[in-house]
């Protein structure tokens, strides 16, 4: 029993990490999004429809979900990219809530083997059974989640060392200065929003297939704001930051049974104090700089 419990928690950590990474990417370019859950949702529905209703294989369903999420992100990015600060944040919130409320009334069902399958408004979307039909065990599915997470994470680490990553950070620090360097800030921001949408989308597609059932109210603003908070708790200096945030909240605190029922009282207080001491999270830019220095020092010492 404990094995299944552990696998469930680990799978949850993995899936939520995608949306946390997605919010983190936007924090890097200096924007706060309250709406990454929209892409998580769009992909959950999109990939579910693809596998359960159109009979696509899982891998294609996952890919499709991520693509649909990316496309949705592009649709939001174009009108909102020139907004800054709170205006952008609230626009993402409005968009995400619109998405959720549309799923509350969105019905699209077909009959498969005598049963109606498909999203049914606020009753949600049942029987997304692709992984059970193809006999993927919970453990194997967890491996798939972490495999994809590793791919995305490696992508982030490469990004952080690349020119594109440097441009993203520069936009986050000072978009005007970046513009003066002759870089098209608008274009890069749209790119960041779309990338973030795809990352959230991977998480959403994975979620739909593990849960087999999605309903609109899961994708409310709480999910998005949690995702945002994880990045800030773990630290804005590295892509590991959001993962640390997720692990602390879901992994550590949820598994300490002594505080069940009081989790948010403890967690809320701890984070509030943490943010006073480290307003950019545990692993902020300065901490990462120090760590990298130590790391290089170690390597030198080895040689």
């Amino acid at each position: 029993m404990d094995d299944i419990y552990l696998i469930t928690i680990l799978s949850n950590i993995g899936m939520i990490s995608f949306i946390a990474l997605s919010a983190y990417l936007l924090l890097v370019v200096g924007e706060i999004s309250f709406g990454q859950q929209a892409f998580f949702a769009v992909s959950a529905y999109g990939s579910g429809i693809a596998t359960a209703m159109w009979g696509w294989p899982i891998w294609l369903g996952l890919l499709w979900g991520a693509l649909v999420a990316g496309a949705a992100a592009l649709v939001v990015a174009i009108p909102t990219v020139r907004l800054r600060g709170l205006y952008f944040s609230v626009a993402t919130l409005a968009f995400a809530e619109m998405v959720r409320l549309i799923f509350e009334i969105f019905t699209y069902q077909v009959e498969i083997d005598g049963e109606l399958v498909g999203p049914d408004g606020s009753d949600g979307f049942r029987d997304i059974r692709a992984i059970y039909d193809s006999n993927v065990s919970a453990f194997e599915y967890m491996l798939i989640i972490y495999g994809l997470l590793a791919v995305v994470l490696i992508g982030f680490l490469i990004l952080e060392r690349s020119r594109l990553g440097a441009i993203f950070r520069m936009i986050g620090e000072d978009p005007m200065l970046t513009e003066m360097q002759g870089l098209n800030v608008t274009k890069y921001k749209i790119l960041a929003v779309v990338m973030a949408g795809i990352v959230a989308g991977i998480g959403g597609a994975l979620y739909a297939h593990l849960a087999t059932y999605v309903e609109p109210k899961i994708f409310n603003v709480m999910l998005g704001v949690h995702a945002l908070a994880y990045g800030l708790i773990g630290g804005l200096g590295t892509a590991f930051g959001p993962l640390i945030g997720v692990a602390i909240d879901i992994g550590l605190l949820e598994s300490i049974r002594a505080i069940s029922g009081y989790r948010m009282i403890v967690f809320g207080g701890l984070v509030a104090v943490l943010l006073i001491v480290r307003p950019r999270g545990l692993l902020d830019e300065a901490a990462m700089h120090w760590l990298r220095g130590r790391w290089r020092g170690l390597i030198r010492a080895e040689n």
């Binding site: 706060i32 908070a229 948010m264 984070v271 509030a272």
Partner: peptide, 23 residues
């Protein structure tokens, strides 16, 4: 308690306190 220039930290802090109050 949160220093000037850390508006995001304030906002996230107010969010976790929200969760705390609700619980």
């Amino acid at each position: 308690a949160i220093r000037r220039g850390a508006a995001v930290a304030s906002m996230v802090s107010s969010f976790v306190i929200w969760m705390q109050l609700e619980e």
